[in-house]
Design a protein around this nucleic acid. Structure first.
Lengths: 112, 112
DNA sequence: GTCTTATGCATAAGATTTCTATGTTTGAAT
DNA sequence: ATTCAAACATAGAAATCTTATGCATAAGAC
């Protein structure tokens, strides 16, 4: 990720979960592209961060996988689980309240 | 810091700079209290994070210090420098654009 | 008068997260 | 033939924060 990398720290999981919740199953490489589009080229997920995170979330039961062979190439689809859905909802709520708090502290008037 | 600590990662410097920019000189302990108030008890700066950060920012020329003795107790005031002011402005702008980007990616409708 | 709490600074070790770098294989395009 | 995109993966380094610890003074409670 670039785009003020410090700020994005801690948001990777939320981003991945939310995109999977909204768009259904997706594979790693695709997630990189999709997030890049959604963020109009400002969020660039790095594979070195993404794959370990996907693995961790799978291990924690937030995602489940499904491997498909495209010719001889493996493609690993990730799908959000019911647990993952619960988690993503609270994460997004947390994020919203975080924005509000920060707007107060940084005295940001309007986000226009 | 608590309040979804992951999210706050990377925002400490911005918070400190902005509060100093808005309220003038302040000492470490005071910053902890002030930020707690401004955030209605949701952001709890920890001293273990705050002091090293203050030192780093001073070393980088964003802050300057002034030591005052209150009786036998030392109090170290921090004040933002002109360089610090430039930096905090871009930081806040970055934060605003970060919010916008994230709102798009997380499809957050209104922040009400 | 003593004990606890608040004030006020500071550092160190550990955990967590992310980035950079590196690596492999396959398919498509030129 | 060669280069570039697709697609996965891991390891080491860097950055940031938390927890723990430490020291010392001032104020308030009892």
């Amino acid at each position: 990720m670039n785009h003020s990398p410090e700020l994005l720290k801690g948001s990777l999981q939320t981003i991945v979960l939310k995109v999977l919740a909204d768009y259904g199953k997706m594979y790693g490489y695709e997630l990189v592209q999709r997030v890049r589009e959604l963020s109009t080229n400002t969020i660039n997920l790095t594979e070195g961060a993404l794959y370990p995170t996907l693995h961790r979330m799978e291990k924690n039961g937030l995602l489940k996988t499904e491997v498909v062979m495209i010719g001889k190439r493996m493609r690993k689809y990730y799908r959000i689980t019911p647990t993952g859905i619960e988690v993503v909802e609270t994460r997004v709520q947390h994020f919203v309240s975080f924005i509000k708090t920060m707007s107060a502290v940084l005295s940001i008037k309007d986000l226009a």
